[in-house]
């Protein structure tokens, strides 16, 4: 192998930070914006994405040497679509409320560029274990990103964080809530500010490493 062996540590570091799908790669932005009105839906979407990503990476990696490259994209899409359908069915039975809250976005995991992107960029070139690990890492990174976004939106928009209905904390009194954050347009604003802030940190580090 001429290529440098990729380690699990690097896989997770990439997933969380260096190639964070939400803040760095800007992959899967539709759900990023749509389901981050609350921490709860963000967590649900994150879990769904992790499930699909891990399994799609695993399956894609298992059949990587067998699928002709001309049809790999359609094959990946079919695999992802099947996994998403299974996910939908399972969620409909076990967490109906969450299923209804996520609505069409659950189906749209199929066209989440993150998943197809990881299948194409990683799973089709690595062994199943590492591919699954990459799926988990990327999924967790994605989940972390959208939960962070959801946290700010729910915190400022509704003044409280509510998870699974009964775990509610009122942090900001009603008079000081900014409802725009929880509304659709607020998603752009919060996401924009967060990205700008993360860029700021990123550039500072970059500057420091250049100086060093």
């Amino acid at each position: 192998m001429a290529k440098k062996e990729i380690t699990f540590g690097k896989i997770f570091h990439d997933g969380f930070f260096k190639q964070n799908p939400v803040f760095v790669q800007f992959l899967g932005m539709c759900p990023t914006l749509a389901v981050t009105g609350s921490v709860e839906t963000a967590l649900g979407m994150g879990a769904g994405v992790i499930f699909v990503l891990v399994f799609s990476n695993l399956i894609v990696s298992l059949i990587r040497n067998w699928v002709p490259s001309e049809v790999r994209i359609p094959v990946y899409i079919v695999i992802i679509a099947a996994l998403v359908t299974i996910l939908e069915t399972v969620m409909q039975y076990y967490v109906l409320d969450l299923y209804l809250a996520l609505g069409t976005f659950l189906s749209l995991i199929v066209v989440n560029c993150l998943i197809l992107g990881r299948a194409e960029a990683f799973a089709s070139q690595n062994n199943p274990v590492k591919s699954a690990a990459d799926g988990l890492a990327m999924g967790l990174g994605f989940t972390g990103g959208i939960v962070l976004l959801g946290f700010f939106r729910e915190l400022f928009g509704k003044g409280s964080i509510t998870i699974w209905g009964d775990l509610g904390i009122q942090i900001i009194p009603e008079a000081f809530q900014i409802s725009i954050f929880a509304q659709a347009s607020g998603a752009f604003l919060v996401f924009g500010i967060l990205v700008a802030y993360i860029n700021k940190i990123k550039f500072r580090r970059l500057d420091q490493s250049e100086v060093a």
Binding site: V67, P68, V78, I86, V90
Partner: peptide
């Protein structure tokens, strides 16, 4: 190519329909 696609679609459909 066609066989591969067909197999994938059939397997996926069977899997989905089982669930």
């Amino acid at each position: 190519i066609i066989i591969t696609l067909m197999i994938v679609v059939i397997v996926a459909t069977i899997g989905v329909s089982q669930v």
